[in-house]
């Protein structure tokens, strides 16, 4: 989970108020509690802040996941080994010719994908831990060498 300070450091820090908050710090707080979206800070969408914006997105992604399902991926611990990509039963079922046999995912229906050497989780609602027939699945946690995946 990122801290408010970490998010704030990546913002333009001009307090221009375009996002509707009175300061960048306030916007950082709102980001963390998911009341605001990064794109509401229009200055950061401009080219010169591209790196910072990407960093912010990667910091916020895991919390976005946690919001829905309780899954948190710690990108700083992830080695991008892809064990979770291949081991997750949802990925196996949804991508039998790709993730299931160890290859790169061939479609967007998988939960785990590796981007820039770190895992990103999407389609989290498909996770077996949720929905009507939920089971306590550990298939992504057990194969992870560094404890980068967690459910809270």
């Amino acid at each position: 989970m990122p801290t408010v300070m970490e998010l704030y450091q990546l913002l333009p820090k001009t307090n221009c108020k375009k996002c509707g908050e009175s300061t960048c710090m306030a916007f950082a707080v709102a980001l963390l509690s998911r009341k605001k979206n990064i794109s509401e800070c229009t200055p950061i969408l401009e080219g010169s802040f591209k790196k910072q914006k990407e960093k912010l997105e990667s910091l916020l992604l895991p919390t976005a996941g946690a919001e829905e399902t309780g899954m948190i991926v710690h990108p700083e611990l992830c080695t991008g080994c892809g064990n979770c990509v291949v081991a997750c039963p949802v990925d196996v079922a949804n991508d039998p010719k790709g993730a299931a046999i160890g290859c790169a995912p061939t479609n967007d229906k998988v939960i785990f994908r590796v981007v820039d050497g770190k895992v990103i989780a999407s389609n989290i609602k498909e996770c077996r831990r949720f929905g009507k027939n939920r089971v306590l699945c550990y298939a992504c946690i057990d194969p992870c060498p560094t404890g980068a995946i967690e459910f809270v």
Partner: peptide, 12 residues
């Protein structure tokens, strides 16, 4: 700009 599927070592 971005790599997909490469591990941390590969991305580096």
């Amino acid at each position: 700009k971005e790599t997909r599927n490469a591990c941390r070592r590969g991305a580096a």
